[in-house]
Every structure is written in C-alpha cells, then in structure tokens.
C-alpha cells in the first residue's frame, strides 16, 4: 500500500475515487481527482488507482491534453446494476426489510432534529471547513 493511502482500509481509496467521479458532471483528470479528494494524496497514488480501476473496467477514459480524463463507466452492465440496486431500494422502502438485512445511512427526522442539523451545518459553514 502506498504511504499516501495509509489510514484507509483496503478498497477505500478506490471507493472514494469512484464516488468522486460519480459526483462530477464531467470527466476528470487525475490531477483534478487529487485536488478534489485533498487529504495530501500524491498524484501517483491517484494515477495508479485510476489505472487499476480502468483495467478492471470500472471507469472509462478519454484522451484529454497530454493524459486522460476519467469518468464512471456507463453501459449495459451499469444500467443493469442500477436496476438491481433500485429493486433492492424498493425492498428497503416498502418496509419489507423487517429483518434488518440492510443498514441505511439516514433515518427519519423530527422537527427538533432538523433544527439541530441546520444549526450544525450553519456552524461549520465558515471558510476553510471543507464546503461541499
């Protein structure tokens, strides 16, 4: 494991890079991905991980300038994966997940919760605090 990826379990950097590409509207160069992720990652670490993801067919790339720009791969497989995931989501939403097989990141909110969360976000909406 390269020293830059320390503190991340196996597969975590790949997940972050995939998530970064999915959140971006346009294909990103390795330098752009590194800048977006921040956290002192080295260019070579990002580059290596992107190449590995490309080799595995998880991302597509197109020539851009002297290198490549990467995007999340969209294709028949991806569409099917999306459909399957939707089915599972439905399973979760209809409340048939009573045995607790899936863990959702978010739960229902009360009004007090909303207030608390809005305060929290307002508190941290100062410069240099990792804005969205």
């Amino acid at each position: 494991m390269p020293p830059e990826a320390r503190g991340r379990p196996r597969g975590a950097l790949e997940r972050e890079i995939l998530a970064c590409l999915a959140a971006a509207a346009v294909p990103l160069s390795p330098a752009e991905v590194r800048d977006e992720l921040g956290d002192g990652l080295a260019y070579t670490t990002v580059m290596t991980t992107l190449s590995r993801l490309h080799a595995k067919g998880a991302v597509s790339r197109q020539p851009a300038g002297r290198g490549y720009a990467y995007a999340l791969r969209g294709g028949p497989d991806e569409a099917q994966a999306s459909m399957t995931a939707h089915r599972m989501l439905k399973l979760l939403d209809t409340g048939s997940n009573r045995a607790g097989v899936l863990s959702r990141f978010i739960a229902d909110l009360s009004h007090q919760d909303e207030q608390l969360l809005n305060d929290l976000l307002a508190d941290s909406a100062r410069p240099g605090t990792d804005p969205p």
Binding site: R10, G11, E14, R15, L18, A19, A22, K56, A58, L72, G74, D77, E78, Q80, A81, S82, T84, A85, H86, L89
Partner: peptide
C-alpha cells in the same frame, strides 16, 4: 451477485 461489485464493493446508482 448480479451487481457489478469489485473488491471495492461500491455500487453507484444513477438516482
């Protein structure tokens, strides 16, 4: 099993 899951285990849905 039908999802395309590598060892990164991440599935991104377009939603």
């Amino acid at each position: 099993r039908r999802l395309v899951v590598g060892h990164h285990k991440l599935v991104i849905t377009r939603d």
